[in-house]
Simulated scan of single mutants.
Amino acid sequence: MKVAIIGFGKMGQAIKTLAEKENHEVSLIIDRNNSQDFTSEKLQGIDVAFEFSEPGEASGNVMKLLQSGVSVVCGTTGWTIETDLINKVCSEKGIAFFHASNFSPGTWMFFRLNEWFAKQMTGTAYEVSIREKHHIHKKDKPSGTAITLANYICQGNPSFTGWKPDNDFSCGNKIPVSSVREGEIAGIHTSVWDSDYDTIEITHTAKNRAIFAQGAMMAATLIQGKTGIFNMSHILSEYFNL
């Protein structure tokens, strides 16, 4: 594949390393120091663009890529995805948009495990909370992965109505989420089920960013020649029969 990388932080660098290892052609890298090169002309012939930038930049980047006829794999979180508009452009251009808050397939198995477990805990005395830890460079709190985890727990147990920061003491059945930023932690997410008698913790730990780059490359391969909007459920179905 001929690829572009929009946003050359740690994830962009990890994707470049993997793409070159797998003999893909990295034709364009856009970061803040060369934003003037982010043009439709420079995007000609690109098969897929990896968009891993900042929340305030993602929407504009994604629309520019799609309107230029380039399929997009996006991992930026903390922005509002205009699904109807993106789907319309994808249909018009015959291209695809793939978005995930986390590109580790294991994380999505972790989500499904928590959904199942939440269902089993319906009607019990356990209270649930979520802890997430990331490196100091991550700006959004809580992480998109933590929010997705909360949503899966709510799907499994509708008595929970969403999530809230752990310092929000308002009433309601929302799941408290705590966030820590320290060191170079790739990502640790834990659901904590606590009662007066015991505590059950379910944790997913990313050891490094390589797994996210691998998942993003799987997504790029998956959407080649396809039209529409895709997510990690398609990865689990295509590669893991889940």
Score class of each variant (00 low, 15 high):
Met1Pro: 05
Gly9Cys: 06
Gly9Met: 05
Gln13Met: 01
Ala19Ile: 02
Glu20Val: 02
Glu25Arg: 11
Val26Ala: 11
Val26Met: 13
Gln36Ala: 15
Ser40Ile: 09
Ser40Gly: 15
Ile46Tyr: 14
Ala49His: 10
Phe50Lys: 03
Pro55Ser: 09
Ala58His: 14
Gly60Pro: 03
Gly60Arg: 10
Met63Trp: 00
Ser68Gly: 12
Ser68Trp: 03
Ser68Phe: 07
Val73Tyr: 04
Gly78Thr: 04
Ile81Arg: 06
Lys88His: 12
Cys90Gly: 11
Ser91Trp: 01
Ala96Ile: 13
His99Leu: 05
Phe103Pro: 03
Gly106Ile: 06
Thr107Ala: 09
Trp108Thr: 03
Arg112Cys: 09
Asn114Asp: 13
Phe117Pro: 02
Met121Val: 00
Gly123Asn: 11
Glu127Pro: 01
His134Cys: 08
His134Glu: 00
Lys139Leu: 06
Asp140Glu: 13
Asp140Pro: 04
Pro142Trp: 01
Gly144Arg: 00
Ala146Tyr: 08
Ile147Asn: 02
Leu149Asp: 00
Asn151Val: 14
Asn151Met: 12
Tyr152Met: 15
Ile153Met: 13
Asn157Met: 07
Asn157Glu: 06
Ser159Leu: 10
Phe160Leu: 14
Gly162Val: 13
Pro165Leu: 08
Ser170Ala: 13
Gly172Lys: 07
Pro176Trp: 01
Val177Ser: 09
Ala186Phe: 08
His189Gln: 10
Thr190Val: 13
Ser195Arg: 13
Ser195Thr: 09
Tyr197Phe: 12
Thr203Gly: 13
His204Leu: 12
Thr205Gly: 00
Ala210Gly: 00
Ile211Gln: 12
Ala213Phe: 06
Lys226Leu: 13
Thr227Glu: 15
Met232His: 05
Met232Cys: 05
Ile235Gly: 01
Ser237Lys: 10
